[in-house]
């Protein structure tokens, strides 16, 4: 089987989510990559180094600069003439583009796969991860999105893919990019961080989040996260949200601070290697999944922890 993997990048470097998708695709067969964007020579060269990669298709066109699905999906559908499976990381970009591709190909997409059981059979979470479905496709071509935390990352070196330019596609003219507010941060990305410190509604304000959560994250070199309640209350921006409808994470250590542990939050972090919970309510559901639980007032305990760790 020949697979085409969507390379997620920021215009200058390959993003980690791509590497898990490459691993998933390699279980199906030959791995080809698609780098779409504007001025992406560097990304293509980097992508060609990923272990196990065959061909790297590069579509360099201003129309692909902001991943507009109206422009990108026809390009992918066109390339699928010579591939059997389109594999995208289940990022907001992948989730935006892949179903549009699937419908153009008249196939059903299989979303957020957790494992490859055979060339047609996959597992995926349903009901916010409260159940795992094993599903089998009967379509001629596969369109898959891949949950990044469920697959090892492919090595970023050792590959020797051949780079090939694709000239297909252009601007459909029905959509345009207006602007973005992307947080610039020196911190690790939430979805690839080794340690995450998350705060919940118990913090009470964005000032307290800054005062209590941020110093601990700084000390540990951790990424910052939050529960939906904290995001909805405006303590932190939306891209901090960990949970079913936010980001799915699986770091080495996850600190849940002042987070009660609603089902939808647990769905986003329960695959973390070690979970540390600090909450003053000893009956909070978070303690049912925590490896280390501390029943304490977070406003005292967290600064003390930051001082002593």
């Amino acid at each position: 089987m020949k697979t085409l993997v969507w390379v997620e990048h920021d215009g200058s470097a390959v993003k980690d989510a791509t590497l898990a998708a490459v691993t998933a695709a390699s279980k199906l067969g030959e791995v080809h990559l698609l780098v779409a964007g504007s001025g992406v020579d560097g990304v293509a060269k980097e992508a060609a180094q990923i272990a196990g990669v065959g061909k790297v298709h590069v579509a360099d066109n201003a129309a692909f600069g902001h991943n507009l699905p109206e422009n990108v999906a026809p390009l992918v559908a066109d390339l699928m003439g010579s591939h059997d499976a389109f594999v995208a990381p289940a990022t907001t970009t992948g989730k935006n583009i892949a179903p549009r591709v699937a419908a153009l190909l008249d196939v059903m997409q299989i979303s957020e796969i957790l494992s490859v059981e055979s060339s047609k059979t996959f597992t995926r979470p349903i009901y916010a991860g409260n159940a795992i479905a094993t599903v089998e496709s009967s379509d001629a071509k596969l369109v898959l999105t891949v949950r990044g935390t469920a697959f090892e990352k492919a090595a970023t070196s050792g590959g020797s893919g051949t780079v090939e330019a694709v000239s297909a596609g252009g601007d459909t003219g029905i959509s345009s990019f207006v602007g973005a507010e992307i947080a610039k941060s020196e911190r690790p990305e939430l979805t690839s961080a080794k340690i995450i410190v998350s705060g919940g509604r118990a913090l009470g304000s964005s000032e307290k989040y800054e005062e209590v959560i941020v110093p601990l994250a700084d000390k540990l070199g951790a990424a910052l996260g939050a529960s939906r309640a904290a995001v909805d209350a405006g303590y932190v921006p939306n891209d901090y949200q960990v949970g079913q409808t936010g980001k799915i994470v699986a770091p080495q250590v996850y600190f849940a601070i002042g987070i009660s542990g609603a089902i939808q939050h647990l769905a986003g972090m329960k695959d973390s290697k070690t979970i540390v919970a600090i909450n003053k309510d000893e009956d909070a559901p978070i303690f049912q999944v925590a490896d280390f639980g501390l029943v304490a007032d977070l406003f005292n305990a967290v600064p003390e922890l930051t001082g002593k760790i």
Partner: peptide
Amino acid sequence: PRVKTVKVSEPPVRSAGVKV
């Protein structure tokens, strides 16, 4: 349907650890 559900199972259960 194009996709057949072969089976649906419970996710692996995570057990509680210790309180410090």
